[in-house]
Design a binder for these strands. Structure first.
Lengths: 135, 135
DNA sequence: AATACAAATGCAACAATATTGCATCTATGG
DNA sequence: CCATAGATGCAATATTGTTGCATTTGTATT
């Protein structure tokens, strides 16, 4: 599983990368760098940061920053494959007011915003409320 | 101007706070903490951080984090008045791909997203494209 | 299977960003 | 004008992220 994901994105397969990827695969919600550190038994912090950067650049994961919260990371759907900026997501980022977890939620269609004078090329939606589990 | 804003939000009026508020009033786009530091002649960095925190808590300003960019700050419309989380904005956050500036753009109506199982209470939209000036 | 080489790792040092404690000062309501 | 809660300034420290460099490892190629 981890191997296929890495190979598909042309990333070299190493034990450490598989471990990091495992942490993402074991969580259905977005995780913080601290969460990853807690899940790993022994690791080098610098290598972790570089791994995260590689994963982000190749579209394996993407960053999510909810207002007032630490940066979180989540697996991409498989369509992301560029080096910076917003990714082509068909999902919104949702944070639950009760459990504080951040989820990437699939939506059929994102509404198109129109703003006079501005050309909108990409957009992302961040929402807060109550998640399915806490309802 | 600065005094009214501060008093309305029940914040004590000090020379430093007026200076910081001035920096916001002089920019029509969101600014980084670095931008504020550059605009001030002599200041205490810790006091600046605390001022920003007070302003944010009282809804004078709000944080904007665009993917891959540093945190930026912008004045609130006047409707924000709570201590954390998303604010009740009627605008979207827009970053220009060319000049990199971040703008809060007023929109008549934000589209409502529906997600089965999730109760969405607040939402924020982040967009990228070309701004009015760079068009 | 051996090899060559680009890429990843691990360590040290450091840079940027943000917070806490505490003593002092000041804006504001009475 | 005074009392005092809140703001400031300084020192120390925490958190988060980066860079350089020597060494190791994964992968494609022979």
């Amino acid at each position: 599983m981890e191997v296929e994901i890495l190979k598909k994105k042309k990333l070299r397969v190493t034990p450490f990368r598989k471990e990091v990827l495992d942490v993402f695969l074991k969580n259905e919600h977005a995780i913080s760098i601290q969460d990853i550190e807690d899940a790993l038994v022994e690791f080098d912090r610098i290598t972790l940061y570089r791994t995260i950067k590689s994963f982000t650049n190749k579209g394996v994961i993407h960053e999510i920053v909810m207002p007032g919260d630490v940066k979180k990371l989540a697996l991409c759907d498989g369509v992301c494959d560029h080096d910076s900026g917003l990714h082509e997501h068909n999902h919104i980022h949702f944070q639950c007011r009760l459990c504080s977890e951040v989820y990437c939620v699939e939506v059929d269609e994102l509404p198109k915003i129109e703003v006079p004078g501005f050309t909108i090329e990409e957009q992302e939606i961040q929402a807060k409320g109550i998640c399915a589990k806490c309802s």
